[in-house]
Design a protein around this nucleic acid. Structure first.
Lengths: 238, 238
DNA sequence: CGGCCGCAATATGTATACAATGTTGTTCAA
DNA sequence: TTGAACAACATTGTATACATATTGCGGCCG
């Protein structure tokens, strides 16, 4: 894609540009259009978006902080390739944090908030029928994000947002072949428990849902620093 | 301070420079040498560290992502001034996350890890005797950071690190006048419970410790947009 | 013929120049 | 005297040029 025309039309109108470019690359990574380990060359991106490398560098830096991109000094940026261990940690963190957030929301009985969640699930169903996988992934993330926001804790909501993004990368890498995309029914069940104010049930269902997502990936492979010595033990002199 | 000589001696030796400058500004903020709302002018910092604004911008961007600095477009960067609401959220997040981390560490019975914690507490005691407040603040953060690392979850350890830094800012802003700096005995008691493998006690003591820190700050003021009208009600003509 | 050394190409790291924006102080007019 | 408009300054935003590091290729030596 080439956005050069729009970008250069209005030369210096603040830092709306950064935001746009960040959003575009972010979405492409979450959507698995840019897969893990894809090189993100500064010049190429600068050309594509019609801006200078300065802007691209800023965006890449931000994505690196969000752990979606890895920058190796003097070698450039690539889409991150989280290890299985990192995957395990991300899921553990999500269990811990999202359980508590669900607890808080269940206690709140915020009907308007729940309606917002229902709206997202409705969109999910539509995307499911339309077989639009990209939109489903997007909306599934939005659901968790929205839930976090309902818990009146923007700090934790930010953390969840980051963890959800990273989950996308983990799925891209380790999804098992016949994986069934996470059914939105589970989201619906969580909402029902929240609406009923049933704290325990809501937590249990969120836990179940997260375990379900985990069951769709295979984190058993050892990616954390391959030990060549033992791997090639029999091929090496003692 | 002026690091121009060292910086320019070896012109382009990788991005060790960024790290150094980030560390320096980070420490200054945590130490309360740079107080909330202090303007961080690019040129001034560039001059002080003997680098160009390019590097400074990168560092400020990173600090902004860590929520220690706020960048307002076209107006520049300042040390962040978290609101009382944000303070509340940070403490809540710490309770949720650090409780679970303590639970995990209690179950692990990792003696070598506990020794590391004891080492930090010993340093804390020394700093307490030497009346070195800066070092005490630093070490207190290190304790929580080290504890998080013992829980075998680098993802959450990163989050805790960020929350601990932000806590420093909150203390700088809202510390009550006669506040007694957090005694390192509480850290010690947590270690003892961990050593005994007493999960419940360890969690209880961490909770107590965090509540103690919270009691040192006054988050009751409403900082979310000061209402001059009511503030100066009696001094204004209706 | 195989392996090592050196050079060239490519990409990133940093500095600087220029453009745009925001702020402040001054001047002029009502 | 007060208000607003304007102009000068200060500061950030962006692009570009140059310095430096890595990588792959080709030639040279053993």
């Amino acid at each position: 894609m080439n956005f050069a025309s729009e970008a250069s039309r209005r030369p210096g109108r603040g830092q709306r540009t950064d935001e746009r470019i960040h959003g575009a690359i972010y979405a492409a990574i979450i959507n698995h259009q840019l897969r893990p380990a894809t090189p993100l060359q500064e010049d190429a991106l600068a050309g594509a978006f019609g801006v200078s490398r300065t802007i691209i560098r800023k965006v890449l830096q931000r994505l690196a902080h969000e752990k979606l991109v890895v920058i190796t000094p003097n070698k450039g940026a690539r889409v991150a390739r989280p290890t299985t261990e990192e995957g395990r940690q991300v899921f553990e963190a999500r269990h811990i944090i999202e359980s508590e957030l669900v607890r808080k929301v269940a206690r709140k009985r915020d009907d308007r908030g729940l309606d917002r969640l229902r709206g997202i699930v409705a969109e999910e169903r539509k995307a499911q029928l339309a077989d639009d996988k990209r939109r489903r992934v997007q909306l599934s993330g939005d659901f968790h994000q929205a839930l976090a926001e309902l818990a009146d804790n923007a700090v934790l909501a930010d953390v969840v947002q980051e963890l959800v993004s990273r989950t996308s990368l983990i799925i891209a890498l380790y999804e098992v072949p016949g994986a069934v995309p996470c059914s939105c029914d589970e989201h619906s069940e969580i909402i029902d428990a929240l609406a009923a104010g049933d704290e325990a049930a809501a937590i249990e269902r969120m836990d179940h849902h997260l375990r379900h997502i985990e069951s769709q990936v295979d984190l058993s492979q050892s990616t954390g620093g391959v030990d060549f010595r033992s791997l090639f033990a029999q091929a090496l002199p003692d």
